[in-house]
Nucleic acid binder design. Structure first.
Length: 472
RNA sequence: GCUCCCGUAGUGUAGUCCGGUCAAUCAUUCGGGCCUUUCGAGCCCGACACCCGGGUUCGAAUCCCGGCGGGAGCACCA
């Protein structure tokens, strides 16, 4: 793996922060944010802060109580070492204090324009009448905001940048707004909530963050933070950006994904179609594979849209050696074997073809009954095939034993038992079939390979064996 | 439309800052072969790329200008 490019100005140590928004579990697209931070902090022996960016945001983006734990679970699984956990929602008094300073310094104003008017002004580069409100009046309005005098959407605090700024996105940004919704941690205690650019300008300074790593969707926030630092006379920090990461097979947006979970279309946060870290764990993807996969993209600003095959290839390198092999036959067809040697009751097949020392598993053929997949049955009925690791037969519901020696003919997998197994595929579909008796010895959580089908992680529960398919 | 960013093979990526050692790296994918009691792994071979046009230079993937293409932002989201 190529090493990450050096960070600038690391002489006085490195402090970085992860700032997830607790609206749901982290998914594969968030690993760039998490792992790049973690790698850099490890590279420079620095400190990593986990800061939940849990201000109340837009209507579509709502902080939810369960998300905090889901995020931490995902980060732990990834092996991200957070040295401290901080909640933005605990720091509201700090933002209020600094907001007040800004208003008292005449750098911001309370604007009562409706959102649409504000936007129209921004587009045309026009100032509104609130921009020139005297400082004392602004401060007075600010306290009334904090006292709950205003309703949602009625007023905002805006930074005075320049309504003629060439970048329309930069024109008198909103810094605080009113939200009447209940917060999962602070309830209804706060009505005035800061926007990201303001809270971070203050916290990146107060928390001693030295390097800010963020997606390129947040580049404008760099300028806002610098602008605010200059007003307060604070030293600048370093910014590093990376492009967006998405998988080709991940077609749904994050919000659509949560909606589908709510509607019951997806089974939950573990559903493979969500691509959450939880779903990857469940499938037996090794967190190191995720790390190798993600870090391979470096820190470039180009957006990455990559096939999951690349992730699977990384995972295969790690798990192929340790995954034991078993047979699974989807859509099973019962086969009665005629002519089998009477003294052949048990067949031994290697647990791993490349690691003989690991031993074998035993398949019981004393009944002369085995199961093969319908697909194999249809493809080979009437022909001689080899039941892998067992014998050669002429395939049919009444099959004829031919010989034991290994011949150069098609090999198919088979099962000696009727162990019901459900294999949940990445697209959410389910294969049902029988697994071999050896599966009884597999422990829940173990990653195995169903020969000729692929790698999967086994879960055993009251409903029997469920295998979550990882990849081929 | 405005602001900013990016543009190396099917997909990603190294190299671009500090021009030659790049007839361009590695991974993945695909095709072929070997091996193999898996359509897995391993080994070998092969396929495909510097967005286009000018300029600077003895020499440009690398520097400059102009196009074109893509992305992000222009939210009282993060």
């Amino acid at each position: 793996m190529t090493e990450l490019p050096d960070l600038p100005n690391v002489e006085d140590g490195v402090v970085m922060r992860l700032a997830p928004y607790p609206s749901g579990a982290l998914h594969i697209g968030h690993t760039r944010m998490a792992l790049l931070n973690d790698e850099y902090v490890k590279k420079y022996d620095g400190k990593l802060l986990l800061v939940f960016d849990d201000t109340i945001g837009s209507k579509e983006k709502v902080p939810v109580a369960e998300a905090y734990d889901l995020i931490r679970e995902g980060l732990d699984w990834l092996g991200v070492d957070c040295h401290e956990v901080i909640y933005k929602s605990d720091r509201m008094h700090i933002f209020y204090e600094w907001g007040e300073k800004l208003l008292k310094g005449g750098h911001a104003y309370v604007c009562e324009c409706p959102a649409e008017v504000l936007r129209a002004h921004r587009e045309r580069g026009e100032e509104c009448e609130h921009r020139n409100t005297p400082v004392n009046d602004n401060v007075e309005k600010w306290f009334r905001m904090l006292d709950g005098y205003f309703g949602e959407g009625e007023v905002v605090v805006r930074l005075k940048t320049d309504m003629k700024h060439p970048n329309p996105a930069f024109r008198d940004r909103v810094l605080f707004r009113i939200r009447n919704r209940v917060h999962p941690r602070t309830g209804d205690r706060f009505k005035v909530w800061p926007l990201l650019e303001f809270s971070w300008a203050i916290d990146d300074h107060l928390l001693g963050v030295t390097h800010i790593l963020r997606g390129k969707d947040l580049v404008i926030e760099d300028e806002m933070e610098k602008y605010l630092w200059d007003i307060f006379g604070l030293p600048h920090r370093e910014f590093v950006h990376y492009g967006m990461l998405r998988l080709k097979e991940m077609k749904l947006s994050k919000s659509k994904m949560s909606r589908e979970i709510e509607r019951g279309v997806y089974s939950g946060v573990h559903d493979p179609r969500t691509w959450t870290l939880q779903s990857l764990m469940r499938r037996g993807i090794d967190p190191q594979a995720v790390r190798n996969f993600t870090l391979g993209f470096g820190v470039s600003l180009t957006d990455v849209e990559v096939a999951a095959d690349n992730l699977y290839a990384e995972n295969r390198k790690l798990i192929d050696g340790r995954a034991n092999r078993y047979f699974f036959v989807p859509d099973p067809v019962e086969i009665h074997l005629a002519g089998k040697p009477d003294d052949l009751d048990v067949v031994h097949a290697p647990l791993h073809p490349d690691v003989e020392e690991r031993g074998t598993r035993s398949l019981d053929v004393s009944r002369g009954v085995v199961f093969v997949a319908k697909e194999d049955f249809d493809a080979h009925a009437g022909k001689e095939v080899r039941l892998k690791d067992f014998c050669n037969v002429v395939l049919g519901e009444q099959a004829q034993f031919k010989s034991l020696e290994v011949k150069d003919i098609s090999k198919i997998q088979w099962s000696d038992a009727e162990v019901p197994v459900r294999v949940v595929m990445p697209d959410g579909s389910v294969l049902e079939g029988f697994g071999e008796s050896g599966l009884e010895g597999v422990s829940s959580g173990e990653v195995i390979q169903f020969e000729r089908i692929g790698f999967a992680r086994i879960e055993k529960g009251v409903g029997g064996i469920t295998a979550y398919f990882a990849h081929r």
